[in-house]
Simulated scan of single mutants.
Amino acid sequence: MKNLTVERTENYLKFSLDQRDSGRFKVNVSKNPLTLALDHTLTLDFSEGSAFLPVSEVKGREFYSLIAPDHQAVGAERRVALPSLYNCRDLGGYVTTDGRLTKWGYFYRSDAPDHLTKHDVAFLSEMALAAVVDFRSPKEIAHNPDNYFAEKRHYQFDPHAEVAKEASLMPAKGADKDQQKVAKLLELAKTKAGQQRLVEMQQQMVYQMEELVLSAAAQQAYTDFMKVLVRQEVPCLFHCQGGKDRTGWAAAIILGLLGVPEETIYQDYFLTEINNEPRNQARMAIYQQYTDNAFVLDYLASLQKTKRAYLDSAFNAMKTHYGTMEAYAKQALGMNQETIEQFKEMYLY
């Protein structure tokens, strides 16, 4: 099975084949990633591996299967094209070290679906999700509960990531809480010692990522999460608030156990920086209404960034204490070799 890359521009979907084939090909379209049952068929003209389809012809979440004379390719858009979610994306289409492909439409990592439009609720409902997993704390959930979009089950697994929680809190309705947050940081920035502390605090997320691997609470949360996937409660959408760190480590576990190379896992992690840029700019604009202090703004910006050092910290902790992702899954997440092999057969083409 080969990957069919599908990318959205303003007006078109671009389909790309690694083989750079030219010619007219039929592309089967399915709404169901579990069966790839035929919904309708497209006829696309490829030139040097690329073809285009007007976006106006795309109806909801679609999965594409192309059968060429010497190979089959399957693909979908990586980012789920919803205006009210910046960072909802599919973990399908990643090539493993043994040449297999992660299945499209089974795992969606996302920012919190707590502010959806009616259109987006309908879109997600049509995706027929079996499970939604929320990694936020009870306080975060109470502040901005998820919208319901017809998922069969909804889980809350809290890894107790206090820094991540602080980093990803959405600006509150009204200015009071954001203004109070900035005021506290400004008080700290009045002294040289406080300024140094703010610089040091920019490393908090590094330590937090280590805790997501090693703390008992985090291990329990990710154990419960993996049980959902082993039970094949898919499609599954999992999220925290911004879909960056708590969600990022969950995605790393999935991809690592499926045999996706580490550098590809990093590339997936870095997509958050691109996807969340409009959201982060809006949040920083709110903070900038209350201060222009560089120490304060640099600290607040550091919590929103997607840095290699953050994921490095998680991987380093995992390797130091367990050696490999499989050993981590066995010793910390309650899996065994048989379960891991079954996991691969479930979720790889």
Score class of each variant (00 low, 15 high):
214 L>A: 07
126 E>P: 00
146 D>S: 11
226 M>T: 09
224 D>G: 02
186 L>P: 04
161 A>H: 10
224 D>R: 05
178 D>R: 06
164 A>D: 14
221 A>E: 08
214 L>S: 11
161 A>F: 13
198 L>Y: 03
172 A>S: 15
172 A>G: 12
185 L>T: 01
220 Q>N: 09
211 E>A: 14
180 Q>H: 05
142 A>M: 08
135 F>N: 06
173 K>E: 15
103 K>Q: 15
173 K>G: 10
137 S>Q: 09
224 D>Q: 13
159 P>M: 09
112 A>P: 00
208 Q>D: 15
161 A>G: 12
106 Y>A: 09
127 M>A: 04
96 T>N: 09
123 F>Q: 07
203 Q>K: 14
229 L>A: 03
182 V>H: 06
142 A>K: 14
135 F>C: 05
158 D>H: 05
110 S>I: 02
110 S>N: 04
219 Q>P: 03
190 K>R: 12
225 F>E: 03
125 S>L: 03
152 K>V: 11
204 Q>H: 13
177 K>S: 07
112 A>F: 01
160 H>D: 12
116 L>K: 03
200 E>A: 13
144 N>T: 14
148 Y>G: 07
125 S>N: 04
210 E>N: 12
189 A>I: 00
98 D>R: 13
141 I>N: 11
115 H>T: 11
228 V>K: 09
144 N>K: 13
133 V>N: 05
228 V>F: 05
129 L>H: 02
134 D>P: 00
157 F>W: 06
141 I>H: 10
191 T>H: 01
223 T>M: 03
149 F>D: 06
221 A>H: 01
215 S>D: 13
180 Q>W: 01
201 M>V: 08
132 V>N: 02
182 V>I: 07
94 Y>N: 13
119 H>W: 06
108 Y>K: 07
213 V>Q: 08
180 Q>V: 03
200 E>S: 08
194 G>C: 01
168 S>A: 14
219 Q>F: 03
172 A>R: 05
188 L>W: 00
175 A>G: 09
119 H>Q: 05
120 D>M: 00
160 H>N: 13
112 A>W: 00
203 Q>C: 10
198 L>I: 03
172 A>H: 08
128 A>E: 15
206 V>L: 15
146 D>T: 08
205 M>W: 10
129 L>G: 02
190 K>F: 02
219 Q>E: 05
108 Y>T: 05
115 H>Q: 14
120 D>H: 02
160 H>M: 13
132 V>I: 02
192 K>I: 05
